[in-house]
Write a protein that binds this DNA or RNA. Structure first.
Length: 527
RNA sequence: GCCGCCAUAGCUCAGUUGGUUAGAGCGCUAGAUUGUGGAUCUAGAGGUCCCUGGUUCGAGCCCAGGUGGUGGUACCA
């Protein structure tokens, strides 16, 4: 024995988790359904390694001071930086560029696996987690984007979430145009545009007034921390907010907005556009209505107009295929992937609320998203390669499903063959072998404890049934089978010890040659 | 990264103004029960009171730093 002081502490690195039988089974059930859906849509499998050269991953170039900021990186023995992948899109771009000649384009592929992020873990947030992506590379048309949205909807339907999610769709070009219109165009304003996008991304959490503060001077949060704002003028803020609020119903009716020129507004006026109590808000209730109002508000700018047209096409294609607004919904407040998306962006949001152990509501929110990234493959090749795709956060979605459906029943364990007489363990092993030959999961008890402990063991293994053969049975060429599930039910009613020991509920003694079929009969009661 | 809160048995938690061998419930192991999961009763095992240093005659308790967790915030491909 190692001296106590010298023991190594058995501990998992922060932000990583072991996953047991129950969780793995749930993951498998989920990923089977996702894979099935993707394949129905004609996507083929691809696997790439966990490691890539750091420069291939894109954003995080090797930085001498902080090579591990955000990603896990290490130097190969030839001094090249390698990193653990932080998503599945960058490796796909690399694969496509590297094998461009061989692939049939448009290339429809999917991939599944763990990705790694070196950042602060939180509840439900790990440094290793699972993603399941699908992408179409080499199709520039918005019909590809529309397909991605519809397939995402199909996938969530297949997982039993129909009516409990919505795929929100937006187009980055509209916002780009809006920002051009308020004087944030051009390379020199890239930083401020990013600040605006970040502010917009917080609409859910902070509400319109929080976003207004972040678009203006800045905002002080509850912990006293100050976040510097984008420094927009009140007019510009109104313009941006009016864009975001198109979908929320806050801007109805349409005429009220269009009757007031932007120059007439003063700070705070956006909120005064709210619908008066009970007045109609017909146009936000449909995707077409959102397109219409976007056209009225923002079509002056050519970039915005292009984005609106694309958005309209996606909505029309989805609609024509039977995906109504309850599944695929236009929503100008979705930004996502601040840096690299170039056109349509989408986000799968769960719309239900569950409560945690302490009864507090949890909003799961986004469980996946994606969009068009026409620039990503182009980093590796002279020619531009259009691409669109999305990613499902499997770990997060699984947590949501668990919260929704409750803990999955632990899968049934094997039949346990008890060993009452260690000298005859060979007979026990032969019985287990027969069961396996009959297609029944079975194991021989290999510990050193007595019968009572063996029963307890079988119970914990969630064994459906135990095989008992002591000297009594052996002499008669018999085995006793105990149905543990029925037995537990019978036991619940018993309070007297004597009754407990004598009734021996839910067990039968049968000739040994009938072992397999009798066990099958017990198992059949489960199904 | 920044701000706050927390850390005692496998789990959930008590622990007095700083005072001798640190407790409970649940769980675990075993026995009562000659061959049966549950219930009941009995016994047992299980602790670096997160770590390091400081104050004190004396620290689970007070102080400082660290680590871990947690809540908010920032970042998020």
């Amino acid at each position: 024995m190692t001296r106590r002081a010298d023991l190594t502490s058995a501990r998992l690195p922060r932000g990583f988790a072991d996953r047991g039988q129950t969780e793995l089974a749930a993951t498998r059930a989920m990923t089977d359904k996702i894979r099935e859906t993707y394949e129905l849509w004609g996507f083929e499998a691809l696997e790439t390694p966990f490691f890539e050269y750091t420069d291939a991953l894109g954003k995080f170039l090797p930085d001498q001071d902080r090579p591990n900021a955000g990603v896990f990186s290490l130097k190969d023995d030839d001094d090249q930086w390698m990193s653990l992948r932080y998503d599945l899109t960058a490796p796909l771009a690399r694969h496509v560029a590297e094998n461009f000649q061989k692939l049939a384009k448009p290339y429809r592929s999917y991939r599944f696996g763990p990705v790694f992020r070196n950042e602060k873990p939180g509840p439900g947030r790990f440094r290793q987690f699972l993603q399941f992506d699908a992408d179409i590379v080499g199709a520039a048309s918005v019909s590809a984007d529309a397909e991605m949205c519809m397939m995402m909807a199909d996938t969530l339907d297949a997982l039993g979430l129909r009516g409990k999610y919505v795929i929100k769709v937006n187009n980055r070009k509209i916002l780009d145009g809006v920002m051009e219109a308020i004087g944030l165009g051009g390379e020199e304003n890239a930083g401020r545009r990013l600040t605006v996008l970040r502010a917009i991304d917080k609409l859910d959490r902070l509400g319109a007034e929080g976003v207004r503060a972040l678009l203006g001077q800045g905002r002080k949060d509850d912990s006293g921390d100050f976040t510097k704002g984008a420094g927009l003028t009140p007019d510009s803020i109104d313009t941006v907010l009016s864009f975001l609020l198109v979908q929320s119903g806050a801007l109805t009716p349409l005429q009220d907005v269009t009757n007031m020129a932007p120059a007439q507004r003063s700070e705070g006026d956006v909120m005064t556009f709210k619908t008066p109590e009970g007045s109609p808000s017909y146009f936000v209730e449909s995707n077409q209505g959102i397109v219409d109002s976007l056209r009225v508000l923002f079509a002056d700018n050519p970039t915005s107009r292009e984005g609106i047209d694309e958005l309209a096409q996606i909505a029309a294609l989805a609609e024509a295929s039977g995906y109504k607004r309850d599944r695929v919904r236009l929503d100008p407040s979705v930004v996502r992937g601040l840096e690299y998306y170039t056109g349509p962006v989408f986000e799968a949001e769960l719309t239900f609320t569950v409560h945690d152990d302490e009864g507090r509501p949890i909003q799961f929110g986004s469980v996946g998203g994606g969009g068009r990234y026409d620039g990503l493959v182009g980093r590796f090749m002279a020619e531009d390669v259009p691409a669109t795709g999305f990613s499902i956060g499997v770990s997060r979605l699984q947590a949501a499903l668990r919260a929704l459906k409750g803990e999955e029943e632990k899968a049934t364990g094997p039949v346990v063959v008890l060993v009452l007489d260690r000298d005859h363990i060979g007979a026990s092993m032969a019985q287990a072998a027969k069961l396996r030959a009959g297609g029944i999961a079975a194991e021989v008890y290999l510990g050193s404890s007595g019968m009572k402990a063996q029963m307890k063991y079988a119970d914990r293994r969630k064994s459906p049934c135990v095989v008992i053969q002591g000297s009594d049975e052996r002499e008669k060429g018999e085995v006793t089978l105990k149905d543990l599930v029925e037995g537990a039910k019978a036991a619940a009613a018993i309070t007297e010890r004597a009754e407990w020991t004598e009734s021996r509920p839910a067990q039968v003694t049968v000739p040994e040659h009938r072992l397999v079929e009798e066990v099958k009969a017990i198992l059949a009661r489960r199904d």
